[in-house]
Each structure stands twice: as structure tokens, then as C-alpha cells.
Nucleic acid binder design. Sequence first.
DNA 1: CTCATTTTTTCGAGCCTCGAAAAAAAGAAT
DNA 2: ATTCTTTTTTTCGAGGCTCGAAAAAATGAG
Lengths: 414, 414
Amino acid sequence: MTVGIRHDEMRKRNRAMVIAAVRQADRPSRTHIARVTGLSHSTISAIAADLIEEGIMREAPPGEAAAPRRGRPQIAIAPDPNAARVVCLLLSFNSLSAVLVDYCGAPIARHSHRLPTLALSREELMGATVEAVRKVTAGHGPILRIGVAVQGIADSAGKEMLWSPITPHANVSLGPVLEETFAVPVTVHNDSNLIAVALRWRRPERYRDNFVAILLSHGIGMGLVLDGHMFKGEHSSGGEFGHMNHRPDGPLCRCGKRGCIEAYAGNYAIWRRAHGKSPMEKPVADIDASEMEALANAARDGDARAREAFREAAEALGYGLGNLFALIDPAPIAVVGQGTTAFDLLEPEIRRYLAQTAGGQHADAISFEAESNEVPLIEHGCAMTALTSLDREYFAPALHLALPVGAPRREDVA
Amino acid sequence: MTVGIRHDEMRKRNRAMVIAAVRQADRPSRTHIARVTGLSHSTISAIAADLIEEGIMREAPPGEAAAPRRGRPQIAIAPDPNAARVVCLLLSFNSLSAVLVDYCGAPIARHSHRLPTLALSREELMGATVEAVRKVTAGHGPILRIGVAVQGIADSAGKEMLWSPITPHANVSLGPVLEETFAVPVTVHNDSNLIAVALRWRRPERYRDNFVAILLSHGIGMGLVLDGHMFKGEHSSGGEFGHMNHRPDGPLCRCGKRGCIEAYAGNYAIWRRAHGKSPMEKPVADIDASEMEALANAARDGDARAREAFREAAEALGYGLGNLFALIDPAPIAVVGQGTTAFDLLEPEIRRYLAQTAGGQHADAISFEAESNEVPLIEHGCAMTALTSLDREYFAPALHLALPVGAPRREDVA
DNA sequence: CTCATTTTTTCGAGCCTCGAAAAAAAGAAT
DNA sequence: ATTCTTTTTTTCGAGGCTCGAAAAAATGAG
């Protein structure tokens, strides 16, 4: 049972709505905010005045060179970059990077280094993340939140990394450790989910209420947005598309099961097949991008084994997408990551197999878009997730709750 | 962008919340409503007074023999059965039934008859539904809404039957025809989705935020509730679990594709396999329940072909559920329909195959519950869907909107 | 018959949003 | 240069809603 709406709740929601409108439009005027939120000008005026006085928003020069028109010029409103700072951590195979981001989403500082994730103990891994946050925040004042993007599965509450290919340890409690150390809320996210978040911010006209983001890389990841909501499981970050079964008793997957889509379409699987290894051979830990490029080129040049490896990858992906689309209606697909450099080889075959499934009824109407570098997307998604959490939890509270440092309440100031 | 909350919107929502609380609890007191909604006693008192004055609710003798306690006795509140009536239509293979239901959900009148759905023209089919509504409402005053439950796929707006095995016609516009004839809102639903709705009302302690309802019958249907929301596609009623692909190039499915789960686990598939027919033989239209019972008994008695048919059905279901659970986290499963009479044969095998998939990690923790008769569930789900729509759209409007006949507004009365 | 207890209603205070009108800020017209 | 137009933003009073506290109601216990 959802809880009833009380009076302060109403203000809270409308504040949140105004903040969201400011983030979505680029420096909108009050009039524009009133239009998109459906609230009256007077209400927007009041809320905007509050937000500005509290240091959350500020008036700014108008965005896209507004053609000088008759009448009182619009006053653009933008988030105040100094209202808050958050840290985004990106943890992936042999690599950890941290970015300090201002309240507008612009990076302030950046720090990344390589580390042998597979070899680290649980404590060393957590210690490294703590250290990365320390380094990137050094000399930049307090932060209000930390977001962590991980390869692998997070729990739905965003506190732990339940499983990840980058480490032998399960249930790594990154959230609690960072929360205790830095005394700010921390959430751990699956990287593919964050890619979907980023696509939503970058291309809302294409990626809005229903779409699929697929990460083709060493493994296969998926972020799914349904009905405008990021899709998550009850316990885990969910959406393990790569571990749907393609063929019972198929090749060995990194997860230990057999016949997963990833065991056909992950880099290691394509590499294993193209090199004529046994399908039951244990997946190698990592493969250089250049090596995958070479395989793709071999396939383009007609190398039979390489062609077959990519064909089988496409078959698994095609049937997998078909099965997904049997459950949800077909939706725009974004394909992201290193694997997209061979997408010219994959796409026609994917479409061919997709057309053979019930979900692929109108396979030719299904559209793919590829983007090879996933890292900026993950970072962007992580930042926006952290910032919108701030928007909701810190900057749109019921008014009698305490506000964070740097955001004095109207009454406190007057 | 969600729209802002205005003042009348607040009242509307809180009214809706109170009505929902009354439906969910059995004849709650005002105090109970205040507790579950989180609203104050004064607010509940005011809203309840409005609802009673408008004829939507009424005070009723307390529900479950409240032990006589000290203090002022609670006054139970219940929906006024006379506030509205709705019609539920159940359209399935060779059968059409209509139920007239009061605002409490109790059936007032019922009418059903057999008709050769496969042979009917589009117009005859629609005409039959109109006639069924006429018959069941005759002499009972006006209705406020019609819900239609169909085997097959509805569009997400609930206006059309996009595809159904019971008729050769696609895109049958049941909604518009009935809406025009009876001048009330009409929604068309997939039957499996309604089963899920009914389970939610009947067993909220087990079926609430995340669960799967599987309909095992001539075909395979699925209703999926995720995060408390009925799962639907963007265009269709969605969740075509039965048409996920089990084996590329597998047996011929009723949908025309090959290797769908249904082509292994639907009654027609089990029958085809057990009778040694070719996997590519066109599925028969219908199979008598007694014949399926006989097959199940043969399998129990050790008949090899029958055993194998059920084993293959279980394999397809097991892998299919595993794939589903790779996407969503495992959730309680309700298995409904004629096919459950053989569930003793299926369940152990389903678990065995499920355990071989990534989604079946903890296969032994996944629980099944079977219920053989789906019709009462579909009817119940259809009724509750229609009634809760009324609750929201008619009985919790912004106050300056018109109210339907039979529910005079406070001002009109005073 | 009075007291204790629990539920329900009443009442005034405090917020919030809204519409209308006023104020502000520019370009256009004279 | 000054006045008109147009558009945006702010101000202000009205109305509606929820809340907490207190009162009223209804019953069992003593």
C-alpha cells in the first residue's frame, strides 16, 4: 500500500519535479518549467526562489542563444555547480577509476589506475576503492554521495557486489565500507544499467520509456528500461541477458553453466571458437581488444573458423533478443562496448536469427545503434544516478527535515 | 515528465487510497484505514464521510466477528454494492460467458454459452460479445464498465485483441464496438494477466510484488508481476512466455514459428509427441481434458512415449523458467489450468532442468503452487480490474469533475 | 451508575497551490 | 527620447486540504 499524500509531501514532490525539469531541459526559464510540470507560474516562482535562496539552483545566462524577442527576457535557471559534489567509481577488470563531479555533472577531478583485481583479497579490493575516493576528493571539500559502477551483479539495494568476473570474491560489501569511511550514502550499480541511464539522458528522443542497452565485451551485459523504469530484480541488479540459455548442454560459460548466450557471444567465447579450442575449455580471463580486432578482420577476409565463431555469436544473440522480445515488446537496442567493432559482422546474422523467433515478428523494424566506447557512458550514467538521488533525497525533503551543509533553509537565512 | 501535484490532485489520490484500503482490508474501521494509509484520523473521517454521502461506501456490520472490546466499537466500512455494476466477459475457445458484478465484486447474474469461435466471422464474433452483455444486463440497470478476458494477445491500451488462437482474425476491435454500443469504457485483457491479478487479491502474502502465473493449457500463457506492477509490453499485453524459443528448429508451434516452449509444453504438443506424430504436424485445434488425463495416466503407468512427451514438456518449461529467472530474479510461481493435473509428472523434471540454467541457481528455493481451474481466477481478476478502474477514474476524480449516475456529489445532495 | 477506554468527529491553524493583477524588462513604434 | 507592446516574473488574496488537539460518542469494567 502506497502511503497517503500529506501536505509537506506535496511540496516535496513539486520541488523534486522542478529540479528534474531543470536537469532535463538545458537552463530552462520559469515559464518553461511551468509548462512542462503543469504547475502554475506562481508555484514555480515560489519554488524557484526557495531553491535559489538555498543555493541549490542559480540564475544563469540563457542557454542556446535565445533569439532576442520582444518582452521581458527569460531568466534561465541551472543547478548551482557548487551545491554539491559526488564521486563516481568505476571498477572493472584490472582497473579502478574515480571521478569527482559537481552538481551540474561536470567532472572536477579524475584519478584512475590499474590494479590486479583478480589477485586482490577482499580487503585489498575494498581498500583500493577507499583510497581512490580519498585521492580524487583531496583538497576539494566534502562530498555528498558516492556511486560505484561494477562489472557483474549488484544487489538491488545497491550495497554489495554480489558477483563479479573481476574478482573471485562474492558479496563484496563495497557500500557499507565506503559509507562508514566517508559518512555519505553509497550505491553500487551494474555497469550496463548505468549505460542505459546515460543513454536516456543523452538521447531521450530514442531511448526513453522502453529500450535495451546491450554491452558486448568480454562478457555480455544488459540494461533494460521498461515503462520508463530501470529494470531491476527483487534481490539483484537483474537482467542477466548474457546468462539466458541458448542451447542446453552448449559450451562452458564463465558462470560455470553451459550454453549461456555469453558462452557464444562473449569475447572469450568468440576467441575460443575461432581458435578451435574445445567448447568446454575454461574461458580465459581477458583478451586484448587488438586481438579481437584481428579476429574480426580475419572473418571479414573470409577465414572460415572466425566467420563461424561470429556467426554462432550472432545466432545466440539473435535468439536471445527474440526471447527477450517475446516477453517484452520489441524496443530500440543500443549495442555498446568493444564487441561493437565487429558489429558489421554480427548485425545481419542477428537479424536473420531474430526473425525466426516469435519476438522477432517484425525483425526489420527493430533498430540497432552501436557505440564502441562504454566507459564515458558508464561514467555519465553513474554521475546522473548519484545526482538525481541527491535531488530527491537531499534537495527535495519535507521542509521540516534537516538540509545538508551548504543549503541553508529559507527560514535560517531570513 | 510526470506532472506536478496540484491541490485537487492530492484529494483525489487520498480518496483513491482510502477506497483501495477498503477493498484490500475486509471492512476496515476508519482507524484501520488511517493506520495503513498514514493519513490522519481527521482526514480519513472527512473522506469517509464524503464517500458515504456519495453512495460509494457504506457503514457495515464489522467483518470478522470483532471480539467485543472496551471502548467505542469500530464502525466497519465497505463498498456499497449498489454504487456500480460492471460486466466481465470471458472469451475463450468455443465459449463465451458474461458475468454481471456489483461494486463489491459479487456476481449478480451470469450467462454463458458455447459458440464455434473458429468459424465465426469478425462481425459475428463481435456481435456475440455485444449480445452476451445485453443478456446479462437485461433488467439490471446501467453498468459503468466492461472488462473482457481473452485467450491471446491484447494491445497494451486494452482495446483490441491483436491475436488469438480462438479465431483466424487479427486485430479484433472488441473495445471500440462494445464502447460504442454500451457507452461505457471497455478494456480487453489477456487471461493470464488476469489470473495474476486474481492471485494478488486472493493470496497477497504469497503473490504480491514479484511472482509468475503460468497457464498450462492448450497453449501456454503467463502473467508476470514485477515490483508490484502487472507487466505489459509497450504495444501488447506482453509476456509471451510460451513463445520464447526453446530449441532452434524445434517442433512446429501454433504461432507458425518453430521450437517455442508451447510447441513442447502445450497440450497439443504433448499430445502430438505422445501419439508419435511428426513434430512438424500442424497442431490440432483442441483436445479434450479427459484425453490429456488419459495421457498423464499412461505416463504414470510407464508408457514410454507418454513419459517422454511430458519429459520434453518439462524440459522446455524448466529451461524457459530458467531464462526468465536470468532476466528477473526467481519469484514464486503459480501454475494454473488443465495442464496442472499432470503437474506431478512435470514438477520434478522442471526443477531438474531449471537447475541447469543460470536463473535456476537456487532451484530448490523456487516454489510452485498449482491450481487446476483457471476460470474462476480469470473471472475474479477481470472483475477486480474493472472495479479498481472505477475506483480510480469515477470515484476518485478531481472534485469538480462530473460523477457518474448513482453517485451524487455532496453539493448536489446538500 | 461512574470510570476507563477506544473510536470518531469537530475545529482552528498552517501550508500549499491557484488565478488575477501588478511589476519588470526588454523591443517596436512614433 | 518617449510611449506602446509583449512577454516573463512576482505579488497577493482566496480557497482547499491535512494536521493535531480536543471534544464527543459509544461501550465494557468496576
